[in-house]
């Protein structure tokens, strides 16, 4: 997995609440058997018309946001399906950090497996960052995972919380299957115990 340490980039505002995984990556793109190449279809039905032409009003089609690396989004971002194609598409587009007041549980976990940092902040602070993002390409935000800070284009610093284990994995780009494999003895021991306690399982 790619490491996430510091990021300085353009933030795109998407204030809509309940942006679901069908919006992020419609199901027609779930038929792939690969993880790569989904960025072009990120937010497909909001981003293109039926003929495949870009819809100019959509935020990521606007010249100042085409290279966005941060997304500031409305509440409950990523609700819906478990499809990891959603964070795959986001990462493939080039977005490495999403900020919202809340995320759906599965989407939130999926982000960390793909080098994306999802940040939860109170409404007030998300509003402030949304305003900052609305300034466009001249406004760059800085996200520092080690320090757990976001610095706005005006130099204002906002602290954020992140789970210590998830932070460690992101900072070091760790594959958690490898980490769990190191605990094989504990898994073996559990299976032995379970054979006695729950033989039917």
């Amino acid at each position: 997995m790619e490491k996430f340490q510091k990021l300085s980039g353009i933030a795109a505002p998407m204030p809509l609440v309940n942006i679901d995984t069908d919006m992020i990556i419609p199901k027609v793109f779930l038929k792939t058997i690969k993880r790569s190449g989904l960025g072009v279809n990120l937010f497909d039905e909001m981003r293109y018309d039926r003929q495949g032409n870009e819809i100019p009003d959509f935020v990521l089609n606007k010249p100042q946001y085409r290279d966005a690396q941060i997304l500031v989004a409305g509440d409950n971002f990523g609700c819906g399906s478990s499809r990891e194609h959603a964070p795959w598409a986001i990462a493939d587009f080039g977005i490495k950090c999403v900020i919202s007041t809340s995320f759906a549980d599965i989407f939130f976990n999926n982000c960390f497996k793909n080098g994306i940092l999802p940040i939860v902040l109170p409404q007030e602070q998300v509003d402030l960052l949304m305003k900052d993002a609305e300034k466009g390409a001249n406004a760059r935000m800085e996200v520092d995972l080690e320090d757990q800070t976001i610095t706005t284009s005006d130099g204002e610093v906002i602290k954020f919380d992140v789970d210590a284990f998830k932070k460690h994995c992101l900072l070091n780009g760790l594959d958690d299957i490898g980490l769990t494999m190191e605990k094989a003895t504990a898994i073996d021991a559990y299976e032995e115990r379970a054979k006695q306690s729950f033989p039917w399982a």
Binding site: R35, S82, R83, I106, N109, D176, I177, T180, M181
Partner: peptide, 13 residues
């Protein structure tokens, strides 16, 4: 529900 990375994690471990 889990994502595909976690599917792989459960398959392996």
């Amino acid at each position: 529900g889990i994502g595909t990375s976690e599917v792989e994690h459960v398959l392996a471990t």
